[in-house]
């Protein structure tokens, strides 16, 4: 009997799978699920430390389709950020992975999304972005571009909300965009996002094959493939592997992440410094004006403290403290009563 390959914590790839998907065949979300499985397996994430958080929508169902043995919380529409914030405060040791959609994030959940970013909650926040409401059969979402056409012919006239632009504007410490069909780019970005301490936003264009994959859509497979403007080639070196430098000086940028891992960015289309926030905003806007979809790591700030650190929470999960740690001592309590008299 050949033994199955295992990762660094001794688990086979199958341990990172979940229930069978109930999404449409060809859905971009299923690809993202597979890229997540690959990233989590390769990183050797302990399933018990992983908390899969989501809101409502096709995207938000997907946490059931990977790492079945991890905890998951399918919350209410647009409110995943609040649940994730609370879970992270209760237990800093959790690895929080939020999966949301464009309706869940940019419409009903825009406020929570922005406030989570403001607080820099330590989590990975993936938007499975298809510009449409799938479960309710094809209405536009807030990320749909002006002029994009619905399956039945209606044209979107509202300005789109770009989650990456919003996140950059309010100081998100990790902003990236990718495409569900580009595992080569997405897997290292997922790993880097998880290594980052703070809110790591990954806006992943993920075509809806049933309602938004036609001509006139700017979230279709063919449109994304034709207009994808990759900033750089992304690779990820985990902290538990040695770094082998195999690129010429000046052609790549390497950034160390919170846990000692490194992200290596080799220049392709743009000469972009991902630690320059203003440059990221400008590049995003210029790319939009050119009618291109900019993908890659837009911005990274490894110095910003995450919420739990700023709140000075102990490393030990708050949920583990008992009466003796949390109650005022009898002596102090007596003093307090005397003060109130």
């Amino acid at each position: 009997m050949p033994t199955a390959a295992v990762n660094r914590i001794g688990l086979a790839r199958d341990a990172y799978k979940g229930a069978a998907t109930t999404l449409c065949a060809g859905c971009g979300h299923n690809s993202i699920t597979n890229h997540l499985i690959k990233a989590l397996y390769e990183q050797g994430v302990e399933p018990h430390r992983l908390a899969k958080m989501s809101g409502i929508g096709c995207s938000s169902k997907t946490p059931a389709y990977f790492v079945e043995r991890a905890h998951g919380f399918n919350g209410v529409h647009g409110r995943m950020p609040a649940l994730t914030t609370g879970a992270g405060l209760a237990n800093r040791q959790l690895i929080l992975l939020g999966v949301s959609g464009d309706g869940d994030t940019a419409s009903i959940g825009l406020g929570q999304f922005m406030h989570m970013v403001r607080r820099n909650v330590d989590c990975t926040y993936i938007i499975e972005d298809n510009g449409t409401y799938g479960l309710t059969k094809g209405q536009f979402s807030a990320t749909a571009d002006v002029g994009s056409v619905q399956k039945r012919g209606a044209v979107n006239t509202y300005q789109p909300i770009d989650p990456c632009a919003v996140a950059l504007t309010i100081g998100c410490s990790f902003v990236a965009r990718s495409f569900s069909g580009d595992g080569k780019q997405l897997v290292p970005l997922i790993k880097a996002a998880m290594a980052h301490a703070g809110t790591a936003l990954l806006d992943v264009i993920s075509p809806c094959v049933t309602f938004n994959d036609h001509d006139g859509s700017t979230k279709s497979y063919s449109w994304v493939k034709e207009h994808d403007n990759e900033i750089h080639d992304v690779s990820f070196i985990p902290y538990f592997e040695e770094i082998h430098v195999d690129y010429e000086a000046g052609t790549a940028q390497q950034v160390e992440l919170h846990d000692g891992s490194h992200i290596v960015l080799k220049k392709i289309a743009e000469d972009h410094d991902p630690t320059d926030r203003l440059a990221a905003i400008r590049l995003l806007e210029e790319s939009r004006e050119r009618g291109q979809l900019l993908t890659g790591l837009l911005y990274l700030d490894e110095r910003m403290e995450d919420l739990a650190t700023r709140e000075r929470l102990p490393e030990r999960p708050l949920r583990d403290y008992g009466e003796d740690d949390l109650r005022i001592s009898r002596e102090d309590f007596g003093r307090l009563m005397a003060e109130l008299a």
Binding site: A82, L89, N91
Partner: peptide
């Protein structure tokens, strides 16, 4: 945490309660 609204306030508390706090 001073939340952005009461929806988030309860959401944060529920997330924490779920995680055992």
């Amino acid at each position: 945490v001073q939340a952005e609204d009461e929806l988030a306030a309860l959401g944060i508390a529920i997330g924490a309660g779920w995680a055992g706090a």
